[in-house]
C-alpha cells in the first residue's frame, strides 16, 4: 500500500542519483573499489538514512540512535556518500576515498569514521554484530532498531546462518536485515556459484519474517521497513530485488564491474547518464 506523496518520493530518488554520482566520482578518483554492489545498494541506504532511521549526525554516538551495519563492506562508497550527505563529515572527504593519510578506508572502520557502526570487509560478520546491538537494546530496554545489509553472495558464509538462527532464537524483533539480491557475486551468478534459492524459504525456515520488494523502489522499501518495525517476536529479512550496477547502463548486470572502477571514458559516460536522470527528476519537482 503506497501512501507517500509523489514529491516526497521524487526527492528521495533525487538523493539516490546524487549518491550514485558520488559513488562514480569516488571510485574514479580512487582508481579502485566496487561499483556494482555499491550501486545496487543505493535506494535501501537512502531510504534508511534519509527517511526511516532515527539518527543524528551531530551526535553520532547517541545511545538511543538506530544503527545501520553494512555487512557487505565493499559497498562502503554508498555508506560514506550517505553519511557525508547527512552531515556526519565533509562531503569533500569522499574524494579522498582510499588515499593515504585520509579518513575513508577502502572498507568501513568504526574507529575512525563518524557514523560507521561496525568494521566490515570480511564478509559474513555483520549480521552477528547487529545481533549484538539488538541484544544490548533488549537488555537496556531501549527502543532503537538495528538494520543490517548483507550481500546475496555473502550469505554463502556459514556465519550468516549461525547469526540467522541466533536472531530468531533470541526473537530479535528490533532487528531488520536487508539482502541485496542482485544475483551476482565475483565468480558468477549466485545460483551457479552456490545456489541460494529459495532465499525466501531459507530465511523463513530459520524463523524470520520475510518481505520482498523492488530494491530500487524507494516507496516499496520504506513501506517494508515500516512493516518490519511493527513485527513482533521475530526478526525481519527484506529481500531487495536489485540490479548490480544499477543506474549506469553499461554496468548493470555486468559482472566485470564488481570490483573494477570506471576508466576516464566510462566515468564521463556514467556521469552523463546520471546527469540526464537528475535533470529529469528536478524538472518534476
Amino acid at each position: 500500500m503506497k501512501q507517500h506523496n509523489e514529491e516526497f518520493v521524487r526527492k528521495l530518488d533525487l538523493t539516490s542519483v546524487k549518491i550514485r554520482k558520488h559513488i562514480i566520482e569516488m571510485l574514479y578518483r580512487a582508481k579502485s573499489g566496487h561499483p556494482g554492489g555499491s550501486l545496487s545498494a543505493v535506494e535501501a541506504i537512502v531510504a534508511l538514512y534519509f527517511h526511516h532511521m532515527n539518527h543524528n549526525p551531530k551526535n553520532p554516538k547517541d545511545p538511543n540512535r538506530d544503527r545501520f551495519v553494512l555487512s557487505k563492506g565493499h559497498a562502503a562508497p554508498t555508506l560514506y556518500a550517505a553519511l557525508a550527505e547527512c552531515g556526519y563529515f565533509d562531503v569533500k572527504e569522499l574524494l579522498l576515498l582510499r588515499q593515504i593519510n585520509c579518513m575513508l578506508q577502502g572498507h568501513p572502520v568504526c574507529t575512525h569514521i563518524p557514523g560507521v557502526e561496525a568494521s566490515t570487509g570480511s564478509l559474513g560478520h555483520g549480521l552477528s554484530f547487529a545481533n549484538g546491538i539488538a541484544l544490548a537494546g533488549k537488555l537496556d530496554k531501549k527502543d532503537y532498531r538495528v538494520y543490517v545489509m548483507v550481500g546475496d553472495g555473502e550469505t554463502n558464509e556459514g556465519q550468516i546462518w549461525e547469526a540467522a538462527a541466533s536472531a530468531s532464537h533470541y526473537k530479535l524483533d528490533n532487528l531488520t536485515a536487508l539482502i541485496d539480491r542482485n544475483f551476482l557475486q565475483i565468480d558468477g551468478n549466485t545460483e551457479d556459484v552456490l545456489r541460494l534459492e529459495s532465499v525466501r524459504d531459507r530465511w523463513s525456515s530459520f524463523g524470520w519474517y520475510v518481505l520482498e520488494v523492488d530494491g530500487h523502489d524507494i516507496e516499496e522499501i520504506i513501506d517494508a521497513l515500516l512493516t518490519a518495525s511493527e513485527q513482533k517476536n521475530q526478526p525481519t529479512m527484506i529481500i531487495l530485488n536489485t540490479v548490480k550496477g544499477k543506474g549506469i547502463s553499461f554496468m548493470e548486470n555486468n559482472i566485470d564491474f564488481h570490483g573494477v572502477p570506471p576508466n576516464e571514458m566510462e566515468y564521463k559516460l556514467a556521469m552523463k547518464e546520471l546527469d540526464t536522470v537528475q535533470k529529469a527528476l528536478e524538472a518534476t519537482l
Binding site: 549484538g132 541484544l135 537494546g137 556465519q159
Partner: peptide, 14 residues
C-alpha cells in the same frame, strides 16, 4: 564465529 561478532556488537553499545 557468531559468538565473537555478537560480543563485539554488544560492546559497541557499552
Amino acid at each position: 564465529a557468531n559468538m565473537i561478532s555478537t560480543a563485539a556488537g554488544l560492546a559497541s553499545c557499552g
